[in-house]
Every structure is written in C-alpha cells, then in structure tokens.
Amino acid sequence: MMIAKIHVTLKGSVLDPQGTTITKSLNSLGYDEVRDVRIGKYMEVKIDTTDRKIAEERVTEMCEKLLANTVIEKYEFELVEA
C-alpha cells in the first residue's frame, strides 16, 4: 500500500479571497509579519500498489481528471509507504 499526500492550491495568478481574509485576521491578531495566506486542500489517497512509478502515473491522472480543476488550481503530491 502507498499513500499519496496531495496538495491542491490555487495557481499564483488567481486571487484568493479566503486567503486575503485570513491574512487580515492574522494581522489583527498582532501577527504583523504575515504578508499573504493562500488556502488550499490536502488529501490522502490510499493506493493498493507497491510500484511507485505506476502510482505516480495514476495519481497524476486522478489530479488531472478530478482532484484539481487545472483552470485555476495546481497540484503536487508525494508518495509514502503506508
């Protein structure tokens, strides 16, 4: 078994209104050093394979087809032994 740890985040060129709101909230808590927050999604996908290469191909496909909307989002993942 392997686990794909997937991060889906907005592309850099896309404004993130949630992130902007959280930036302001952190600033108002006194964290003046906070300049920007970007909100994303984290997913763990458990995969029944031990072949890292196949897992990588399959997870890439999953991200392209469903887990990310590549019009506005980008994704990255790492594979770990479960």
Partner: peptide, 10 residues
Amino acid sequence: PGVLRHNDHL
C-alpha cells in the same frame, strides 16, 4: 469553458 469560483466577497 472556464470555472465558477467563490464570490469575491465570500
């Protein structure tokens, strides 16, 4: 084409 995002004011 395109995508529908969260309203800008949330």
